[in-house]
Design a protein around this nucleic acid. Structure first.
Lengths: 335, 335
DNA sequence: CTGTTAGCGCTTTCAA
DNA sequence: TTGAAAGCGCTAACAG
């Protein structure tokens, strides 16, 4: 079933059917109704490939997601899509291979689908800074910064990681904690982790609290199992620690579980804080004390930045979005 | 950049470039290398729309996912995709509107993208049985049964819900529980919930244990908040209850949190069981006693059924996959 | 307002 | 083994 079939049945030309399907004004009401009736009768939907091939004017925005397993990114993508529904664009979620060069993959997506714009949900631009130069399609990275990536087509919108980490650090210090462990990403490769680290340490420094990375920092992937292992490593290296700052809720959940297995109660013996503010954080026992990333705000600002760039040619921007401190039950005053 | 450009630069015809790109054998090694060199030089990727438009032989399989928020379905889709990588097919994840007719949406996807096959990750065929008749593209529903849907193109692969619910019921009964509440989906609309309900009740009946739906069954969506509310409702309606069987881990997590808020300890005062076997279930405090759905097995069998149908014209099948009982810490003997 | 027509970039005959 | 040419289904420009 093609528009040719529809045209034949309506006794009109292809062009007319196309015009009706695309809501062009220059069609008589009578004709429009006749075509619509037939379209409806067969539940006709036009072939996307042909449409895209012909009209370079694509109206598609690709959402690139690294892996599918992150709860945070899933929520983010969901919100972006919801917001997009009201706009005259089609979204196209592409799942990228977790361990591949995302700039290269993005370039391929551009070639393959010719989207009007790209949204990176998560992802880490640090490794592939140079490769972004090849991409001329407007892009926005959401939940990570890209200030120092050389590209005139790349915007970024992210939570103010430094301030958020500082906020959490102040909270722990205010509760009397002096010997605090950190579970975070690999500082050598992730600027995101670096920012949270830097923010946290700045507060310790301000209060004259020493920090020995060797004993107090454990590297972990953003996963439950890794968070658990990192917690164990910290406990062994630094038994007197009274609190752990983790860089994601998922790490925190893993850490709490392992601490419990090791006979340390949370928060009784050790306080643990998360980062992200996942829904589930508020349903755990104990409820997680965490930083909520404002996903709606991130989605909205990210989209706005992208569309400003696409529709109005505004230059790319790099924005920080505020966060929310969530007081849970996983921190208590040091006894 | 199109294959025309590549052809010009190579000094050959379009056909040759196309043949190289598609690994056709009838190209001289010399020519092949020359083309490949140029393709590589520009990082050329051919335009998907044109390709699909021309070669009706699509090699695309669409994965239809209802909503994006279910952890279980995300894991499932991830596994399907991983398995697909080795096969000569391209996947295309389409997120369906949560509250719309999925058969209609599937039909539109077929028209729009002309996939070779469809995989429903989750979803509920019950409502739209008749509408599936319009779909001639081979389909498989994974994690739900579709035995009674009238369609010669629809397979299904699901966990043996009845046996799983029976298994959990036996476990609770063996631990001395007699007054057990159930948190599950709407029995009027979800055959999945019905099966789990039926399985569970059959065991109670076998042991001569009474069950009053009015006081012991609470309807809930598959969400944290709803699980929590349902738990509260049960506690009020049936204060002596010593255990709750929930139909998903997410409901169980919500329930445990609310029970804790109401001053009931889990499992001390009330035992709670989950269903699904999410990774996170094993990191909670207490670890969840649950039924693990074997996602790899589901993905594999679902794909096999679909490909058998597509490639070898085998008739559609409806299969049940076994499950795994996971002994956690959220159930204890009734005191 | 409407029908006709020229491609969009690609694959796949068909001839050479 | 290769080049030329015919469309896939659609949109948009043009002519009526």
């Amino acid at each position: 079933m093609t528009i040719k079939d529809i045209a034949r049945e309506c006794g009109c030309g292809l062009g007319t059917v196309s015009r009706v399907l695309n809501n062009h004004p220059d069609v008589s009401d009578q004709m429009r109704e006749r075509v619509l009736a037939v379209v409806h009768k067969y539940g006709f939907v036009s072939n996307q490939s042909a449409k895209l091939l012909r009209s370079q004017d694509n109206k598609t925005i690709a959402i690139l997601m690294k892996g599918t397993s992150s709860i945070l990114l899933n929520s983010l993508v969901e919100r972006i899509q919801k917001r997009m529904e009201r706009l005259p664009y089609t979204t196209n979620v592409v799942v990228l291979d977790e361990y591949d060069n995302e700039a290269k993959q993005a370039y391929q997506v551009c070639q393959r689908h010719r989207p009007l714009g790209l949204i990176f949900a998560g992802g880490n631009p640090d490794f592939y800074k140079e490769d972004f130069a090849n991409i001329r399609t407007p892009c926005v990275i959401i939940t990570n910064q890209a200030n120092d990536v050389q590209s005139s087509s790349l915007s970024s919108v992210s939570t103010d990681d430094i301030a958020a980490a500082q906020c959490m650090a102040e909270h722990l210090v205010a509760n009397g904690h002096r010997n605090i462990g950190i579970i975070g990403g690999d500082l050598a490769s992730s600027e995101l982790s670096q920012r949270r680290y830097k923010g946290f340490l700045s507060v310790l420094q301000k209060h004259g609290i020493p920090f020995d990375p060797e004993r107090q920092y454990a590297v972990s992937k953003y996963s439950l199992g890794d968070g658990a292992n990192a917690a164990q490593q910290l406990v062994y290296a630094n038994p007197d620690m009274s609190a752990i700052f983790t860089m994601s809720d998922v790490m925190a959940i893993g850490a709490i579980r392992r601490l419990t297995d090791l006979g340390r109660s949370v928060p009784g013996d050790i306080s643990v804080t998360g980062f992200d503010g996942l829904d589930i954080a508020n349903f755990l026992c104990p409820r997680l004390t965490t930083i909520r990333q404002l996903l709606d705000e991130l989605a909205e600002r990210g989209l706005d930045a992208l569309l400003d760039n696409i529709e109005r040619g505004k230059p790319c921007s790099h924005q920080l979005v505020p966060f929310e401190f969530v007081a849970g039950e996983s921190v208590c005053k040091r006894s």
